[in-house]
Structure formats: structure tokens, C-alpha cells
């Protein structure tokens, strides 16, 4: 029988499902707005604007909740890392994903109560949760309230720069989401990790 560890507390699972749903709504409405075409609308423009604005505000609130609870309930410890030997650990994990997994090798950094994320996961989660998500929220606030954005930044339209940052971040987060979902199929069974995010128990 597979080992089970209770790794994902209720607050985290609730936050996670909201985060995922809101990001999906934002990606869909964002694509519709960015590639808007009167003849082939993915979502009606006005509906997409409302959907994007509301989901964006909720995502920002959800993110604030995540940061507060993460700090106060001890989950931050999983987001800390040591620079020493860091590239080596990343490489080892990457090698496992690209070679080892096909040979049936054991993962180099098995998940435990002390180590919730392998080095690659930790790196990508830190980047997404503490760089790209704040960035997408900050730039999103700028686009939601364009009056507060500096008109000119280095002789370039401030709103345009804000939007470019928003867009790049959105693209990165979308790519992350796709990879994240795919890697979630790499548990003992393809559905194991999805179940973990529902019942809180990690299977290995």
C-alpha cells in the first residue's frame, strides 16, 4: 500500500482551487480581450472585461490571504531554499524528469513531511507565487485603474509598459499552469496528485 502523508491542509486546498479557477477565468477572458475580433469573439468584449476585472480582484484578495496564512500557519518553510548546491539539485531533478522517470528510477528528492516540493517545484513555485503573481496583480491594478499609472516611463507610454509586463507575466503563468497540470499526472497514478489536492493526503 502506498505511503500517505497529510501535506495539504484545508485552507491551502481551498485557496488552491480558487486560485486555479480564477487563473483559468483570467486566462480565458485575457485571451479573448487581447485577441479580440468582432467577427470571431471568444467571449463578448464587455463580458470579458467584467470577467477579467472581477476575477482579477478576487485573485488579488486570494493571494493576500495566501501570503498571510502561509506566514502564520508555517507553510513558508516549504518556500525557503539554500543557494548552496542549488543548481546541482535542480539539475538532478531535471535529469530525473527527462531520463530517470522513463527508467523507473526513484525520484532524487522524494516528498516527505519536511520536503513538500522537489527543487524544481520549489523554484517554479517561488517564482510563480512571489514574483509572477505579484507582478500580474500589480500590473493588473494599473490596468484596472489606469489613472494611477505614470504617463511616461523613459519616454514610453506608461500604460503600454504596464500592459507589456502584464502580458509577459500572463504568458509565463499560463505556461506554468499547463506544465503544472501535466506534472500533476506524474503521481503513482495519473489522478493521485489531483486527489491529494482534494483530500489533503499525498500518496507516494
Amino acid at each position: 500500500m502506498a505511503d500517505k502523508i497529510y501535506l495539504y491542509p484545508l485552507w491551502l486546498r481551498i485557496w488552491h482551487i480558487f486560485n486555479a479557477l480564477l487563473y483559468l477565468l483570467l486566462i480565458l477572458s485575457g485571451i479573448s480581450l487581447h485577441f479580440s475580433d468582432p467577427e470571431y469573439p471568444l467571449i463578448d468584449f464587455k463580458t470579458a472585461v467584467t470577467m477579467h476585472d472581477v476575477s482579477g480582484i478576487l485573485l488579488a484578495l486570494n493571494y493576500a490571504i495566501f501570503v498571510v496564512l502561509n506566514v502564520n500557519l508555517g507553510n513558508t518553510r516549504y518556500y525557503t531554499f539554500s543557494w548552496k548546491g542549488w543548481p546541482k539539485r535542480l539539475l538532478a531533478q531535471a535529469k530525473y524528469y527527462t531520463v530517470g522517470v522513463f527508467k523507473g528510477e526513484e525520484p532524487p528528492f522524494p516528498i516527505s513531511e519536511k520536503r513538500k516540493f522537489n527543487p524544481l517545484q520549489k523554484f517554479s513555485y517561488i517564482m510563480v507565487m512571489y514574483f509572477f503573481t505579484p507582478m500580474v496583480i500589480i500590473t493588473g491594478i494599473g490596468l484596472l485603474f489606469p489613472g494611477i499609472v505614470v504617463n511616461q516611463i523613459f519616454e514610453t507610454n506608461g500604460l503600454y509598459l504596464t500592459n507589456i509586463f502584464h502580458l509577459i507575466t500572463a504568458y509565463v503563468v499560463t505556461m506554468f499552469l499547463i506544465i503544472h497540470v501535466y506534472f500533476s499526472t506524474m503521481g503513482p497514478k495519473p489522478t493521485s496528485y489531483f486527489k491529494s489536492m482534494i483530500n489533503g493526503w499525498h500518496e507516494s
Binding site: 507582478m135 500589480i138 500590473t139 494599473g142 489613472g147 494611477i148 499609472v149 505614470v150 504617463n151 511616461q152 516611463i153 506608461g158 509598459l161 504596464t162 509586463f165
Partner: peptide, 10 residues
């Protein structure tokens, strides 16, 4: 980036 974007409105 936050400060660049939202610093005093010029």
C-alpha cells in the same frame, strides 16, 4: 516595478 509604475503621477 510597483514603485516605478505607481510613483508620483507625472
Amino acid at each position: 516595478i510597483f514603485f516605478i509604475i505607481f510613483s508620483a503621477h507625472s
